[in-house]
Every structure is written in structure tokens, then in C-alpha cells.
Simulated scan of single mutants.
Amino acid sequence: MERIFSVLTERDISLPIFVTGVGYEHYQDHVTRKEGFPNYHLAFCEQGVGKLIICNREYLIEQKTAFFFYPNVPHEYYPVAEPWSLRWIIFSGSSVHTLLNAAGIGRFEVYMLNSPEEVTFCCNKLHKILLEKKSTSMLEASGVLYNFLANINKLIEEVNSEGDTQLIKKLNSIIGFIKNNFKKDITLEELATHAGISSSYLCRIFKKEYGISPFTYILRCRVNAAKEELINFPDKSIKAISLDTGFNSCSYFGSVFKEYEGYSPNRFRELYFMPQ
């Protein structure tokens, strides 16, 4: 399989997703792109070992590992144990971001593939389609790539720059951070930065381990703190408690509290202090 790049027409570029190139590097060279690459880029290691440096993180890219990044994300990758062989697909389109976001794929990702043959099949099929150079080739290639990306979560298990053994430490660190900061506005990006992982990976590992999203856990921490204040400070207003525990709106606090506890904050307080 050789490298092949698409000759794009205006009709091709108007597609929601289109393939700009596909190829295979038996001996992958050292690549440094300080300004990033203009297209979305997916690469898959078939043999050897290499290293990817992206966003101040380092990843070992070995057999059955794939890496992906958005356009214009600075990066560097190079072989460690040769031959380092990579298959790659580069693509673009107006709907790519929406599709990747729905699949939970962030600005860059590193994956261990549980079905690497699916990637090889996709690359070979795209190469064959583009090689035919028919008027409908890009339309066909677009459908193949769209279907592959829409189902990519079935093929992957994400890894991080420190290895899977660090997973529990990262989760404990996230839980500790939330418990110390839940009264503030915490963003998903802030949690991901704290843990040193991508936002999409954070959501996946958190929900897999705890069965809820990080945001739901934050809400539960706030409700629990509000319960303590309702009981410990019986003269404190509901509005003051809602603000003290991280809720920006008293009405929102009331609806969340009732959803989780089955009672309004006032009723919860009344039940606790009800004469025996």
C-alpha cells in the first residue's frame, strides 16, 4: 500500500467529511510539526515502537496502538524501535468536529485497539477507492470513513501517558480535587488538566469506575454539604445555604435537592427537627 492523496473538487470539499489522504509508512521518519497539521490525522502502529510528544505529554506508540489529533495541534513523533510502521488517514470536513464530539473524541487521543484489523481494513478500502479515481470515489470514501469514525468506540481502549497502573491514582486525585473545590465552579477541562488526561478520557474512566459523570458527582457533593448545613444551622436561610454549597440559583438548588433526596430543603429540615 502506497501513499495516495486526493485531488479535491468543490463538490468533494462540500461533503460533511472527506478524505485528503491515506497511506502506509514501513519505516516512519522523525516528524516535527510545531504548527500542527492542517487536517485531522489518525495513525495506527503495525510494528515497532515509537514515541509521540503532544501538548507536553509523551506516549509510547507500539503495536496495536493508534493516535489521533485535530488540525493545528503541535506535535512530534519518531521511531524508538525500528522498523516503526504506521498506517495513516488524513481527513477534513464541516461535520468532522460534530461527529468526533459525539463519539467523545477530544483534540488528541491515544488508543489501544482491540480490533486492529478493522483499521487495516478501513485503510485498505479507502486506498482502493481513491486509487480508482472515479467521479464518485470521494462520496464513497466519505461514507466509509464516516461509518468507521461513528463506530470507533467499539474498537478502542484509551491509554494515558503514564500507563494503566496510574488509573486509580488519577481517579483518587480527581475525587480529592472535587471534594476540596465543589463549592466553586469546576469545569470538565479543569478536572482533566488536574489529572493530566483528556476530557473525553476523564468522562469514560470516571463513569466506568463510579457509574456517574464527574458533574453528577459534584452535584452530589453539594447536596450532601447542603444537608449538613440544613441540620447544623437551623436558622440559616435556604438561599444562603444554596450559595454556600456551590449553587448559583436557589431555585436550581431546590430542584436538584428534591431530585436527589425526595424532599425540598425546607421539608428535609422540618422532618429532621420534627418532635418525636
Rank of each mutant, 00 (worst) to 15 (best):
P234Y: 04
I212H: 02
F148D: 15
L188D: 15
I54A: 01
V19E: 10
P265L: 01
A43T: 07
S135C: 02
S213F: 03
E157F: 07
S200T: 15
L100P: 06
G104M: 13
S94L: 08
H30R: 10
M138K: 10
L130Q: 04
T120K: 10
C122T: 14
E261C: 07
L271S: 05
Y27L: 11
L131R: 13
S213Q: 08
K154C: 09
S94W: 01
K183H: 12
T98Q: 06
N147Y: 05
E46P: 05
D164W: 01
L100H: 13
E229N: 15
G48M: 13
D235E: 06
S115P: 02
I197D: 04
P38I: 04
F67C: 08
N72P: 00
Y59G: 02
E118Q: 14
M112Q: 15
Y263W: 10
E82Y: 05
G176W: 10
A195M: 05
E259W: 00
S173G: 13
L113E: 02
R3D: 02
N181W: 09
K184F: 03
C123H: 03
P83W: 12
S6V: 02
C123F: 09
K184E: 13
F233W: 00
H127L: 05
I174A: 12
K134W: 03
D29I: 04
K125D: 01
G211D: 12
S14L: 06
K207Q: 10
A192W: 08
K154P: 02
S251N: 12
F121A: 15
K133V: 01
R267I: 05
T187I: 04
F233V: 03
N232Q: 09
